[in-house]
Amino acid sequence: MGQNGVEDEVRKFRVLPACDDEHGGVIVDMKEPMGPTVFQAMLKASLSQWKLEGKKGAWIKLPIELANLVEIAVKEGFWYHHAEPRYLMLAYWIPETKIAIPANATHQVRIGAIVMNDKRELLVVQEKVGKFQGTGIWKIPTGILEEGEDIFAGATREVKEETGIHTEFVDVIAFRYKLLVKYD
């Protein structure tokens, strides 16, 4: 394809096809083959567009067959997040703030905090982001521990972040283990 053909392709597509994620970012699930020049131009246009839209993070799910595009994405600021047998996941933090994309891990520790006051009233919240956002469902405060964080500190931090209430950790009520979390 000549230079004019490449420019026509860039103008035709402009930005990479992406869907919104539940945390204010976008996910690009690359499925179709694409030349490096077109990919680079579309990636630059996409990053500009996502910044204008106020997106927080960008993910590119790149099948192994398109691994030739990794170097281009890395030069634009993406980094390896994780790899599975059939794809690489690249990540990019858009705002000029502390990166809030968690490191990939084989395990996540999630907590749910049961908070009661002296009147034995239970503290419940409604999600501002996530799958229960806007559903009217009430739930206990929940979250994910940060890497290396103590469970006691993580539970009180999550309650404070979600409600603004200072709490005192008393006891662990239960543990649950879930195997084989998939990103597909």
Rank of each mutant, 00 (worst) to 15 (best):
H107D: 12
E127D: 10
Y92A: 03
T106A: 07
M116D: 11
T135R: 13
G134N: 06
I94N: 00
I99A: 04
V109K: 10
I137L: 10
L123R: 09
E71S: 15
L62P: 03
K139Q: 15
E121W: 11
H82R: 08
L69W: 13
I137G: 06
R110D: 09
G130L: 04
L123H: 07
E84R: 02
M89E: 12
I101H: 00
G130S: 02
V115K: 13
K119F: 05
P85L: 01
I101Y: 03
E127G: 00
E96K: 01
V129E: 14
N117F: 10
W138L: 06
A105Q: 11
K61L: 15
F132R: 06
T135S: 15
A105V: 00
E127I: 00
T142I: 13
N68K: 14
D118G: 12
I72P: 07
Y92L: 01
A91H: 00
Y80W: 10
D118K: 15
Y87E: 03
K119Y: 02
V129I: 06
N117W: 08
L122A: 12
E96R: 01
I64E: 14
E127C: 02
D118L: 13
I137D: 07
A113M: 08
W138T: 07
I72H: 11
T142R: 11
P141R: 08
M116Y: 13
T142N: 12
N117D: 14
E96I: 03
I111E: 08
I140V: 15
L62T: 00
Y92S: 05
G143I: 01
P63E: 05
H107S: 09
K131D: 05
Y80N: 14
L88P: 05
K98A: 06
N117Y: 07
E96D: 15
V129H: 00
A91S: 05
V70N: 13
G112M: 09
L62N: 00
H81Q: 01
